[in-house]
Amino acid sequence: MKRRDFLKGCAGGALALGLGSPFGNIGAALAQEAPFPDLVAARGENLPRMFDAALTALGGLSRFIQKGQTVLVKPNMGWAVTPDKAANTNPELLSHIVKNALNVGASRVYVFDNTCDNWASSYRDSGLEAAAKDAGATVAPAHDSGSFQEVVNPGALYLKEVELHELYLEADVIINVPVLKHHGGAKMTAAMKNLMGVVWSRGSLHWSGLDESVPELLLYKKPTLNVVDAMRVMLTGGPRGRGDSQYLACRTLIASADAVACDSACAAIMASAGIAQPGYVFNASQRGLGVSDLATLNVQRLTV
């Protein structure tokens, strides 16, 4: 009897550790370690410096990357437009993150995106391929269905089977580096929506409705860290941007382990400029994939 009790206790403890926290066990372990903020927002003029400040507040990049781990840095490079249009992640920021990941001991850093425009033009024109390669990352292709593997998405209502990029499945650490901008379909794109770039059949997300399916991208695997580039925010004509697009001089960088919290802060920025709220942020928090109510989180605001 005693041994059986012991085993039951072990199983229960493991379950509690696994399911007890909305962040999963890593989040729970981290939460006990030190009073790090849940979300850091940094304002300034220089994205790499803002990143450094935000990460210092979060306890350093080494808190997220262990020595020898493989890291996927997933920018938004879905559009064949130049960096000044702010439709893709800032190349300087990406390059800085890749260098830092290698500095803290990442064995390899991968960068890819399943683009909307032609992939070769998007990789080139966004300046992100060159920036990532110069910083020492491996830029992987994502324009061929052969790079993707179908997985069963646990607990999904819409994306029950989803084809994810093999590097997204393999990488030990995922750093999600989206750009915040307006989006014609989903109202806004930031952390969660950026994960559409690791999925092959994007059409199925549109087919089931973005508000419902975008949160389900967090079900199979969550990014370890989200860093939102909100330096210059496209307010109209997104996500590609047009000649008449308007921009918000936002000068902000948001970092958090919780993609939903990131998107909630981004939605607040968009709302301050009069852009309607996306539905998927609320849906994600309803389904327990993250916390959208920033009042309940420890938010640190920095000016660099």
Binding site: C116, W207, G279
Partner: peptide, 12 residues
């Protein structure tokens, strides 16, 4: 009643 918008997303 699906929230899609793929066409508007791609339209340059």
């Amino acid at each position: 009643g699906t929230r899609c918008g793929a066409c508007a997303e791609l339209c340059p």
